[in-house]
């Protein structure tokens, strides 16, 4: 560490400054090759501590890298976990906050609301599912502080797993009787279907992703709390959401989530309204 001038504090500052200033940067690991997985979580923890210190409230977690194919590429076998604060909430109908994000992309997700605390290790998918009070459809607006979303595993862990903003859907159902492996989503961009997937794309089942995440958090002495929101991970590849675009995520049982990119630049210029 000594040779590079980097430490946890400096990495946290660099990432939060990118976020506040809406500019991207190269991977921190290029400048700080010693940044490993566990240190990266310490950086993420420090960014969260600073978010809370400026008045944001921790309201849940997002899981990242929940597809086995992506995990294999990144060399891990558990999802990433990152904190969600109330500042990331996007009320239904609001446009993607282009003014706060660098290069937002949208991913459809199955969302859990926890009915009780969940603490690993040793939590099974069945036990994790039994802690879920309600299931919703949702869409996450991911963003990365790294140029072109190019990063290594420690980089993305430090960067709060590319968190940006998120919106939850109109239907909240108890998990009983829902087969989340078969719960599908159809993604439309500007009225054209571009992709589809089911919950099985998320670690085989979103509750499997939750169990793996809770057990990994347990290893780091942390737990999930009753009432928290859990974004269980992107079901499809992310789609771009530039100004003027609209994205709809149609779920089998969880309703449709609509997002729009805000007014197109030329309309905003000429409208004068």
């Amino acid at each position: 560490m000594a040779g590079t001038g980097w430490d946890i504090d400096r990495a946290a500052t660099a990432l939060l400054e990118c976020e506040a200033g809406r500019y991207d940067r190269g991977p921190i690991t290029e400048e700080w090759p010693e940044l490993d997985y566990d240190t990266a979580y310490a950086v993420q923890d420090e960014t969260l501590r600073r978010r809370l210190a400026r008045g944001e409230k921790l309201i849940g977690v997002k899981l990242g890298l929940t597809s086995r194919a992506k995990q294999k590429r990144m060399g891990i076998d558990v999802p990433l976990v990152a904190g969600l604060t109330d500042a990331m909430l996007l009320p239904a109908g609001e446009p993607v906050p282009q003014g706060k994000l660098i290069h937002p992309r949208i991913e459809p997700e199955i969302v859990f609301i926890l009915g009780r605390d969940l603490e690993g290790p040793g939590v099974s998918a069945a036990q994790a599912l039994s802690a879920v009070d309600l299931v919703l459809g949702g869409a996450e607006v991911i963003d990365s502080r790294y140029r072109d979303f190019k990063f290594t595993l420690p980089d993305v862990v430090a960067d709060n797993a590319s968190s940006g903003a998120f919106v939850t859907g109109p239907v909240a159902l108890p998990a009983d009787g829902l087969d989340l492996a078969l719960e599908a989503v159809l993604v439309e961009v500007d009225g054209a279907i571009v992709d589809s997937a089911t919950g099985a794309a998320v670690q085989g089942h979103p509750a499997e992703a939750l169990a793996l995440a809770v057990n990994d958090l347990g290893r780091r002495g942390k737990k999930l709390e009753a009432g928290w929101i859990v974004l269980t991970g992107g079901m499809t590849d992310a789609v771009f959401a530039p100004p003027g675009s609209s994205v709809a995520c149609h779920f089998t049982n969880l309703g449709s989530v609509y997002l729009h990119g805000g007014p197109a630049a030329d309309a905003a210029d000429g409208a004068g309204a």
Binding site: A184, L186, I193, S196, A197, T198, A201
Partner: peptide, 13 residues
Amino acid sequence: EVVGTGAGGAVLG
């Protein structure tokens, strides 16, 4: 092993 997922609407809507 899961090798693919989707919704029926992937077929021409």
